[in-house]
């Protein structure tokens, strides 16, 4: 994947209940809102991305290294994989 900067799709929210995470996406292009059940690491990345107005692989990978204490290369792999998924789901552009 070409590393580039991303923005979260205009309107997303994350909700957590007893270790269950739900991302709600509200597309503004006329499509129906949808929900994704996600895991804790996805939720962590999502919350990190929300704090960054514009984000990229490096910004998120550094956050993962600090949080999960893994090496940078592995963090970048995980982040790239997650961002691919987010692109497919339409969470980012």
């Amino acid at each position: 994947m070409i590393a580039k900067q991303y923005r979260l799709f205009e309107d997303c929210s994350l909700r957590e209940l007893k270790g269950k995470f739900l991302v709600m996406v509200y597309p503004k292009d006329g499509q129906k809102p949808f929900a994704l059940e996600v895991n804790a690491s996805f939720a962590f990345l999502f919350q990190t991305a929300q704090r960054l107005e514009v984000f990229d692989v490096d910004a998120l990978a550094n956050a993962v290294v600090n949080e999960y204490k893994i090496d940078l290369n592995r963090a970048k792999e995980e982040v790239e994989h997650t961002l691919e998924m987010w692109l497919q789901y339409g969470l980012i552009k």
Partner: peptide, 10 residues
Amino acid sequence: ISLKLMMEAE
């Protein structure tokens, strides 16, 4: 049921 409740709360 929890997930449906979360969606409704949202």
